[in-house]
Design a protein around this nucleic acid. Structure first.
Lengths: 339, 339
DNA sequence: TTGTACGCGTTATCAG
DNA sequence: CTGATAACGCGTACAA
């Protein structure tokens, strides 16, 4: 099946290629009847403009979504599915397309993104995470690339006023969540966190600490549990910590998925939630209300997060004005049965 | 920042553009030293070939992943995250890229896919579902499009020998799973299924029925529960069914996510799993072992499914030989605590 | 081994 | 209102 081009349509409709182009560009400077005959010819030949040729003069209208994928568990967290859904909603409305980017190493990621942007495969990038002092950011800013970050950069980051972010206030949210536990009378509260090279995790830690301190509770380094790649290992680590510190009466998990591991550990030890140990999560994944007992957590508007990211990135690409460089989305404390 | 093209590199390296092109095409017919000076010039100028121009002569090397997204819950099931991970793994190895496609209506989907393919934005399509008598299939075959289906088409589908699929044997797997329940002495087994216009759901139903019949148990239409969009409604429907048929002692859910709703319903009724009601799921999402009690289920090699889909689609695109038109992946029965 | 020149399918400019 | 024609950046016959 030979490829149908603008020329074929022009010939079929007895007009020049410019006229065909004009019709498709919808400039409105073509008489109704010529337009109709062109449209008719196009339909008859099943003509679809070649995207590569269009892109040669303009752009592919592609935006890249970058997943962290160091190791294996990138896509697993339903969080990402939900952001994706938000992004997708906006992207489509704006006639753009989504390209998924998932790399195995930081080096590869940096190179890949550079190439993707430089080659014109994508017009902009959504980073679905924010690492501490990420060299990638400097690279992107230096190359004047279009990008936006889900999360935030360090408060004193030198490039802070050159980049765009969408985030929730993780410090405050964690502060509030832990405060709820404290107000319920809990004094020994463990924190299950993830690798500290992600800003969001620092923020969770920070909020946790501040909640303790402002309530006159001493911060104890030994009450921190760091999730490892191996889920079984994580569960065991939690169990060991609980055994070592039987005075722990509550756990704050930085993510609902992690809270689920806490559930597993607690149950395996024959303890009860919330009687023996209260658990609080973060994000309000659909998982939260499926757990037994239902998990108390912080609801993050994940879908809206995705929408805003896409919305602003497209504005950046189009060089439109953006009111807020750093958008902070509202959250909500969801109290269920686990505390 | 002006865009660097092949011309600039040629000038910088004092060669012609064809030489530059040859170097990048790696034809090996360029002397080492000229090659080096070209590479050097390219690096100095930070040259990256323009993808649109390349695509104009070749292809964008993009493949499209089609999610069903009728309504809202497309991305939610972790199943999709996992397939995506598999696909992504292969795609990258083969120097291809992933484009996400999610449409709201069937009509839109058909049009979108047609355009995507015709415009050259994607070279091929992975359909992450298989609908009954899907007109889309006919369209794709007629247009000689490159595509592959996750799932299968009807056994007597006229185009069966013209399309490619990767699947697990849902009928047999369900048959086996339900048989396990029957062997445990269960006589009244409910089935929670989804819309019947997806082949996979018909297969689950079919396997369920066959298991009953071959064990001398009468099939009772009224023991079928169909999941609705509204999760709360689904939970309530399950509860109502259990109330109406107190003799139900086991439930087979077509998906672990759905099994989770069954858990919710059962617990809300004050019943115990598996003492009062045994539950069996399907897919072995990570969720399965997080549920309490741990869910028995059928393990589907979701990651491998994604790999195979990508692998074969790329072969189709490259017009390479494919040994099996319809790949069936092995599964495994996972017995945990819920039965 | 290297360079010139053309074509890929569009869009935009400019002249009519 | 319409049609030639020149880009866009790259790959490749063909010529040298």
């Amino acid at each position: 099946m030979k490829k149908i081009g603008i020329k074929d349509v022009a010939k079929e409709a007895n007009v020049s290629i410019s006229t065909v182009s004009r019709v498709f560009r919808k400039y409105g400077n073509v008489p109704k009847d010529t337009e109709n005959s062109v449209l008719e010819a196009a339909k008859k030949l099943q003509y679809t403009p070649n995207i590569a040729a269009q892109a040669l003069r303009g752009s592919l209208n592609n935006i890249g979504i970058v997943f962290t994928r160091l190791a294996e568990d990138a896509f697993i967290n339903p969080f990402y599915s939900e952001v994706l859904r938000g992004i997708s909603t906006i992207i489509k409305k704006e006639n753009h397309y989504m390209q998924i980017i998932a790399c195995d190493t930081l080096e590869e990621e940096k190179a890949e993104i550079r190439t993707l942007l430089a080659s014109g495969r994508v017009d902009g990038i959504i980073l679905l995470y924010s690492r501490c002092m990420d060299p990638l950011i400097y690279d992107l800013v230096k190359n004047e690339s279009n990008f936006i970050i889900s999360g935030r950069v360090e408060s004193d980051h030198l490039l802070k006023d050159k980049i765009y972010t969408v985030n929730t206030d993780s410090i405050k949210d964690t502060y509030d969540a832990v405060s709820v536990l404290i107000n319920k009378g809990h004094k020994k509260i463990a924190l299950i966190n993830e690798e500290s090279n992600y800003i969001v995790n620092l923020d969770r830690m920070n909020g946790y600490k501040q909640a303790l301190i402002s309530n006159g509770i001493e911060f104890d380094e030994d009450l921190i549990i760091i999730k490892t790649k191996n889920n079984r290992e994580t569960v065991n680590n939690i169990k060991n910590k609980l055994k070592k510190h039987p005075e722990i009466s509550a756990i704050f998990a930085k993510d609902d998925l992690i809270a689920a591991y806490a559930y597993e550990a607690i149950k395996e030890m024959g303890l009860n939630i919330p009687q023996d140990i209260a658990v609080m999560g973060h994000n309000d994944l659909y998982l939260a209300s499926l757990l037994e007992p239902k998990l108390s957590t912080v609801r993050v508007p994940i879908f809206e997060l995705g929408c805003k990211l896409a919305e602003n990135l497209i504005k950046i690409i189009n060089k439109e004005e953006i009111d807020e460089r750093h958008v902070v989305l509202p959250t909500e404390l969801i109290i269920r049965e686990s505390i």
